[in-house]
Each structure stands twice: as C-alpha cells, then as structure tokens.
Design a protein around this nucleic acid. Structure first.
Lengths: 217, 217
DNA sequence: TATTCAGCGATTGTATACAATCGACAAAGC
DNA sequence: GCTTTGTCGATTGTATACAATCGCTGAATA
C-alpha cells in the first residue's frame, strides 16, 4: 500500500533525453534538419520512438516541426528569445508565489547553500555558477508544487540556450536578486517573492531588448 | 512573393482534432482508457498517426499517458483544475498586457461586439455565451502576438472542461469584468489590463476553492 | 473463504516495409 | 546566361507485423 508505481522508461523517453543532450551541447546545431533515418540509426533505435522523442522536444520548444519537411533544431532569434522570457517571467513569478506558501526552513537553507560558494569569491566558475542558477529556479518551481506549472517547466530547457547566447545577468546582480527572493520566500511573502522574481527575469528581458535595439536579429 | 506556404495537414493533425472533439463532447469520458487499435480503426487511420495525435493531446492536458498502460482521458479533480486556473491567471494576464501594446480600434470594437447580444437581454443563451467568452480570451491572446504564449494557449482547451464542471462566473460578473478589460486595452493601459484580467480569472479560481472547501475532490 | 500464482488474451512498444512527396539537379526553353 | 520544367533520389508519412508485457481469470493452496 502506498507503493509508488515504478515508472517504466520506454525508448521514446530515453531517446528524448539523448536528443535533448545533443541539442543543448550543440552537437546538433540550430537550424539543422534532423534526418530521422540517420538519427535513429545513430541512436540504435527505430524511427518510431525517435518520432515520439521529437514530438516531446517540439513541446519543449527545442525543435520545430514542418509537415512534409521534417524536424529542425530550433534557431532562436533575439526576438523569439524575448517572447520566451516574457512567458518565463510570469510563470516563474507564479512559481515563486506558490513556493512561498509551502516553503520550509530546510528548503530556504538549501537555496542559500546553492550560492554560498560564490559569495566573496575572487573568480567565479561560470559553469558551476550557471548550474547553480538553474537549480535555484528549478527548485522553486518544484516547491511551488503545481503539476501544470511543472509540465510547462520543460520550457526551462530554453534557458540553457539563452545562456549560450550570452543572455544572462552578471553574477553580482543575480546573487543580489536571488538573496532578496529567498528572503521573501522565508517570510512567506508570496506577493513580494512574485514581484522580485518577475523583476529579476525582466532584467534578463531588458538585456535581450538591448541586443534587439542594437540591430541584432 | 508574400505567398503563404500552404500548411499541409498530415493525418496526425486531423486525428488530433477529431479526438479532441470526442473528448470535449464527452463521447470519450474522463478516465476512459483509449484503446489504440479500436480508436484507430474507428477513425479509419493506423495507430501511427493516432499516437502522434495522442502526444499532442497530452501536451494540451486533455489526456494522460502512463507507460506500458496507455493513454487515458484526463479526469480533472477540483484541485487540479485550480492548478490550471493558477497558470491561466498569469498567462492570460500576460496576454492582456501584450495585447494592450498593439491593439487597434477595430479589434476593441470586435471584442465589444462579442458581448453586444447579451447586454440587457432577458435570458442568456448559455451556449452562445460560452463561445463568446472563449472567443474573447482567444482573441486577446492572438492580439498579444507572442508565439510562445500562443503554443501554450492550447491549454485553453481545458477551459471547455471547466465550463462542464460548472466552473464559470455569472454572466453579469463576466460582462462587467470584460468591459473593464476592454476599456483598459483601449487606453493602452497594459498593466491595468493585466491586473484586471488576473482578477477576473482569479475570481474563477475562488469558485473552485469554494468547491474544494465544501469537501469536493 | 480469502489469497496467491500461473497462464493467456488483450494491449502497448518497436521495427520495418512501402507509399507519398519534396527538393536538387539536369535538360530544355526563353 | 537565367528561368522553367521534368526526373529521380532522398526523406517523410502511414500501415502493419511482431515482440514485450500488463492485468485479468480461474485454479491451487492455506
């Protein structure tokens, strides 16, 4: 009783993760046409599970599907990335507000611990910092405990691409913003947390808008 | 020149719309196990395009997939519907804010025209009213012109289910709310439109919470 | 009578074959 | 030389065959 049903992984799921890796690691590059036969063969599966994987990736906004032409690795313009950030702003704002309702002291402590290595550090290991940043946002969404939001959270894969486009705040700025958000969460100030989170992501949006203003696509 | 590439419809797309119809019309009922062979045969297609359709429906939150068991028509509890509304609140708020930036006089006129038949009417045709309500929200999302948001907009299919669960405001309340939102859009007051839209949907959330408080699942 | 387990039918998971059609290249026309 | 049209290989779209396995039923057991 109360046993958790083990979640079987079908090849579709496994293939999904593999192809996602290929995309975020840029082994598959933006704009690339994903040839199904070739890709299936390389992964050692048939086209059937690959197609399932590609459908999931389309939902994640990592690939684009054009009927009769195929699947392409999504190539983001700054304008499109801005749209993603506009949506992220409200979704993560919601996540923060919901998180404030349930959050425990252990969880705030964990969130703080993510950034402890970087406070007062001479040089910041950007790769480590990027994963900490992502863990922070992921964790808040998880604490928010809204299953619908969690499904949309897959949109966060795009965040990796955004980093690759150089679209992130300075570590100093982020550390300050995150600390303020954690404080709000700790005092169960849902509206405050939402407002701060939105402002934080909106700062990212404004960086994108600078690129656009400078005439970049 | 300027020609719109015709968008081929593959069987997957067509099947998707068919099955969606079956679900929102309750020909397939919540909790039903969708037997692939049977359903494919009834629709006159093979399982391959049906599977593609089911994947899309899962993204729309209309069906649920459990590996090795199959696809099931999603059965919403009030608690889950509340989660949907929490997400809708922020997404539609965003849509309203974005719409305010672009909206034209023609478009505000159209939005008003949707509800003209109901103002001062003796009795309200609830079916017609429901479609007007949905057209209103759909149109605002369209004017917002954010492609990412538009993709998530498919979540709005759940709105039909919400209606079926009796989760909607009184027509009087809705007419008032909508009029206020249109006014805000007209004066290009993005923040105001966002606030009003969120309050409007939040009123729906509170109705759901009443059901939950009364002990309904 | 309640419980466990084996066997089997039903159903999903995956591979593959074949049909449809896209697009690249070459040949023909202007 | 540039554009258009026809042909063919490459690639996607769909159906189907077969393998894996789920869960139900009924017999065996306590």
């Amino acid at each position: 009783m109360g046993l958790k049903r083990i979640d079987h992984k079908d090849l579709g799921q496994l293939t999904y993760h593999q192809v996602k890796e290929l995309i975020v690691r840029k082994a598959l590059r933006p704009g690339d046409h994903i040839r199904q036969d070739e890709m299936a063969q390389q992964l050692g599966v048939s086209r059937t599970p690959l197609l399932k994987a590609l459908n999931l990736l389309e939902r994640d906004l990592l690939v684009e599907f054009i009927p009769r032409r195929g699947y392409f690795v999504k190539q983001y313009t700054y304008a499109e990335m801005r749209e993603v950030f506009q949506v992220r702003e409200v979704l993560e704002g919601l996540a923060a507000r919901l998180a404030a309702e349930h959050i425990t002291l252990d969880e705030t402590a964990y969130l703080r611990s993510l950034f402890a290595p970087f406070h007062g550090a001479d040089a910041i290991d950007m790769a480590a910092y990027e994963s900490a940043d992502q863990a922070f946002h992921r964790q808040i969404a998880a604490i928010g405990a809204n299953a619908v939001l969690a499904k949309l959270e897959v949109m966060r894969n795009v965040q990796v691409l955004a980093y690759q486009m150089g679209l992130h705040l300075s570590p100093e700025q982020t550390l300050t913003d995150h600390a303020a958000i954690i404080d709000a969460l700790e005092r169960r100030d849902g509206l405050g947390a939402e407002r701060l989170m939105r402002a934080h992501i909106n700062a990212g949006t404004r960086i994108i808008e600078q690129h656009i203003a400078e005439g970049q696509p």
